[in-house]
Nucleic acid binder design. Structure first.
Lengths: 210, 210
DNA sequence: ATTGAAAGCAAGTAACTACTTGCATTCAGC
DNA sequence: GCTGAATGCAAGTAGTTACTTGCTTTCAAT
């Protein structure tokens, strides 16, 4: 791996742990295993380095897709949700940092929002399709339900390690549970559907401990 | 107002805008209109000042309450949700900062989580009560729905100014919309409400007659 | 009028930060 | 073997930061 790439990846790691101000050029150079001067020779300044870092991150955005024509909503959405949630969890430190520095460096947060933003658009289209095909309640408030769904993944990704008991347990079952609640909210879980067994089985899995 | 209180409030404002590292003692002293030395004479160190700031914040937590016995769920929850959301929006910068600095100063984020945590407990109790009184679907996944509801308010509070179009519009209608979706998700939207009942769920239709 | 606590003020310290400069080393391509 | 680009290394600059010290001012209670 060339010097430039090593510095970029090191910068991402150090930024995730210390934020912009705490990510000193010295720390990044040590983390990358290069001389601090090489950092300035390659990027010119700390600000330029972080701009390049954000661009390279935005370029490597893996957005999961939903089928144009809905089939089994529960399983399709669960797979999609699991992929999205895994992605957000992987970047949770950087997401938290960029949001925390929103007042001083707003562009960082907007870059991090691109993924969830595309996801919201895809989910809205999918749910609307469910609705037009009579698979969901025609009076359902799709935009609000989608907003709540995305917020739920956002909250799970960035808060679960702070308040573990405030989220569906265990971690790997969360996507299916989120999808079930979402489908109920848009009236797409009818009596004919097999209710996801986990919900009943884990009925005693109370998130409130206090 | 005495010096100590002025410094504490100034520290909160400067912290909300610049975070811990960016909130220099010089900036705080200027914002408070006191001499920088007075800051050290009063609190000893910057770290001690921020500890006191967090404690005074935790002490002034206004948590809205829900009735023990549910009446009109939609209106009761909407009022409660509006109060909670207003509170979180008011503190959104500080919430974002404390989350962003979670790796370096974890106690700040846990303090900020106390409010939403109590809210989740209250909402879970209320929804469970709805369920036991036959006002909500007995197979509803209350814990997951509550988690999603709290995440939705969290996401609205800290992300709406970044992605305005990703949240229910207008801002002041959001609480009612969140509550409607939540009540649908737990099967507690009766015939008297704005939205018709879920068409597919025929067997367990616990609707309240208006 | 005296006193004493609280506050301001000017100056300084030691550490850190982004960034620069000058020079030595490595090493692939000719 | 020579060249030139990439990198390392040591040192330095100028600015910032948390925190200290010593002294003066204010002002209310006695």
């Amino acid at each position: 791996m060339d010097t430039r790439e090593r510095i970029l990846q090191a910068a991402a790691r150090v930024y995730a742990q210390h934020g912009f101000r705490g990510a000193t050029t010295r720390l990044i150079a040590i983390e990358a295993g290069v001389n601090e001067v090489s950092l300035f020779r390659t990027f010119g300044s700390k600000a330029a380095l972080f701009e390049a870092m954000m661009q390279s991150h935005a370029a490597s955005l893996p957005v999961p897709t939903l089928p144009d024509v809905p089939g089994d909503a529960q399983s399709e959405l669960t797979a999609w949700c699991a992929a999205l949630l895994a992605h957000m969890r992987q970047w949770r430190s950087i997401i938290r940092k960029s949001f925390g520095e929103l007042e001083e460096r707003p562009e960082a947060a907007t870059v991090m929002c691109e993924g969830p933003n595309c996801a919201a658009t895809a989910l809205a289209a999918y749910a609307t399709r469910l609705q037009t095909e009579g698979l969901a309640d025609e009076t359902a408030d799709i935009p609000t339900a989608v907003s709540m769904f995305i917020s739920s993944m956002f909250g799970d990704a960035i808060s679960r390690d702070v308040l573990p008991h405030a989220f569906p347990q265990p971690e790997e079952d969360a996507p299916a549970k989120y999808v079930s609640v979402f489908l109920r909210a848009v009236g797409a879980l009818g009596a004919g559907d097999a209710a996801p067994p986990r919900i009943m089985d884990d009925a005693n899995d109370h998130r409130v401990t206090a």
